[in-house]
Amino acid sequence: MSQQSSTIGSEVTWSAEGAAVNTADANAAGSAGAYPGASEPPHLSVRNLHVHVGGNHILKNINIDIPNKGITSFIGPSGCGKTTLLKTLNRLLDRQKGVVVKGAVLVDGVNIYDKEVEVTDMRKKMGLLSQRPFPLPMSIFDNIAYGPRIHGIKKKKQLEEIVEYYLRATHLWEEVKDRLNQSAAALSIGQQQRLCLARGLAVEPEIILGDEPTSALDPVSTQRIEELFLQLKDKYTLILVTHILRQARRLSDTIVFLYMGEIIEYGPAEDVLLHPREKLTQEYVKGFIS
């Protein structure tokens, strides 16, 4: 992929044509507004997205195509709207009070903010890792089996296979195989976060959303999660929010820099981090603003 660094914001760029797309011809936008040089249309793109929370304009005219596969990181100073942006991607944000979302988020070409869209199907395509792990109030086994069960898998044998497979995928199997029926709350916080990752993977998503998924973890657990992300990025599209610049550097293929609710700059990680075009990005990367 020959990606190029792009500047988006009030200035006109290639995505301006995407910005003209409205929700009615969402399908067309999915392919037409593809990431430059991408061989296939992106799973996920955002068009003209504005978010107001309780009267505050939190996100301003966000337009972005997330490249398929690999790791895309949202970075920026706290309060810049990166978590808000992440939560608009699977419609968890508009469950909160006082939130108004305008614009479109296209998942495989379908605007998930359309009234007819079945939200659960869309959410199934996206795993979520939150800032601190939230194991469901049930056993380790049931935590993983929860998603598959909901989506219709009832056979015990099959569920057992799924549970083992994803616990192995997150290197948790050896640690928990003897206590699968114990409460997930008894695990260490690092193990819980890996369990949450395994649980998300078990519903076979295409995209994994991570909202500062290591911020509550100790350095060793953080490292294990990061290793997992690097293993997963060939199969999944990972989108991470992080406030740790070094982490973004270690993991990211693509970087999106947000400031005060706007995308200032986004593109391949080395371009944005090493040769930022915008003054704000330069200042952030150098550590003058944080």
């Binding site: 968890l92 659960t120 959410r123 939150s130 800032q131 939230f134 469901l136 929860y146 998603g147 649980r199």
Partner: peptide
């Protein structure tokens, strides 16, 4: 019941009722 817990269930593709039944009421 933390919102994050309900979000976790919803993000697995559970609908509102499943989330109420398995997460909210259980917790």
């Amino acid at each position: 019941v933390p919102a994050g817990l309900k979000d976790a269930s919803l993000s697995l593709g559970a609908n509102q009722w499943e989330t109420v039944k398995h997460v909210l009421l259980k917790r």
